[in-house]
Deep mutational scan, measured.
Amino acid sequence: LEELEQFAKTFKQRRIKLGFTQGDVGLAMGKLYGNDFSQTTISRFEALNLSFKNMCKLKPLLEKWLNDAE
C-alpha cells in the first residue's frame, strides 16, 4: 500500500512536470493501450480514492505511460 501511495504521488508530480493534464493521460492511454480512462479515474488514482484492486490494476499501465511519455 505504501508503495502504491508513493507511486501515485510521484506519478502526479512527473505528469505535471511533463505538462500533461489528467484528461491527456486518460486519452493517451486509450490510444496507446486500448484502455480508455476518464480524467476522473486518473484524478481518483492520484488522490488514492480508488479501491486497492483498481489501484493495482492501473499502476502498471500508468508506469508504462509515464516511461513512454518521458
Rank of each mutant, 00 (worst) to 15 (best):
L1S: 08
E2Y: 09
E2R: 12
E2Q: 09
E3A: 05
E3N: 07
E3P: 01
E3I: 05
L4W: 05
E5H: 05
E5Y: 07
E5T: 12
Q6R: 15
Q6G: 12
F7K: 00
K9W: 05
K9A: 09
K9G: 07
K9Q: 05
K9Y: 07
K9D: 07
F11I: 02
K12W: 02
K12T: 12
Q13F: 08
Q13A: 11
Q13T: 14
R14M: 06
R15P: 00
R15N: 00
I16R: 04
I16T: 10
I16E: 15
K17Q: 11
K17P: 00
K17G: 10
K17H: 08
K17R: 04
K17N: 15
L18H: 03
G19V: 03
G19A: 02
F20W: 13
F20E: 02
F20C: 11
T21P: 02
T21H: 04
T21S: 15
T21E: 04
T21A: 04
Q22K: 15
G23Q: 11
D24E: 12
D24S: 06
D24H: 08
D24T: 06
D24W: 03
D24G: 06
V25L: 02
V25G: 01
G26P: 03
L27K: 08
L27N: 05
A28N: 08
M29N: 01
M29W: 01
G30T: 10
G30A: 14
G30P: 03
K31Y: 07
K31W: 03
L32N: 08
L32D: 07
L32V: 03
Y33P: 06
Y33E: 09
Y33W: 05
Y33S: 09
Y33C: 09
G34T: 04
G34H: 06
G34V: 04
G34L: 04
N35A: 12
D36M: 05
F37D: 13
F37Q: 03
F37Y: 05
F37T: 08
S38D: 15
Q39A: 14
Q39I: 08
T40F: 15
T41P: 03
I42L: 07
I42V: 14
S43R: 14
R44N: 04
R44M: 10
R44V: 02
F45W: 03
F45H: 00
E46W: 01
A47T: 14
A47K: 11
L48Y: 08
L50H: 09
L50F: 14
L50S: 04
S51W: 00
S51Q: 06
F52H: 15
F52S: 11
F52T: 14
K53C: 14
K53Q: 11
N54P: 05
N54H: 13
M55G: 07
M55C: 05
M55S: 06
C56M: 15
C56Y: 15
C56S: 15
C56F: 14
K57S: 12
K57H: 07
K57Y: 15
L58V: 13
K59A: 10
K59T: 10
K59G: 04
K59Q: 09
P60T: 07
L61P: 12
L61A: 10
L61F: 12
L62D: 02
E63T: 06
E63V: 06
E63I: 03
K64H: 06
K64M: 09
W65I: 01
W65G: 01
W65A: 02
W65R: 01
L66G: 02
L66P: 00
L66N: 01
D68Y: 07
A69W: 07
A69I: 10
E70G: 05
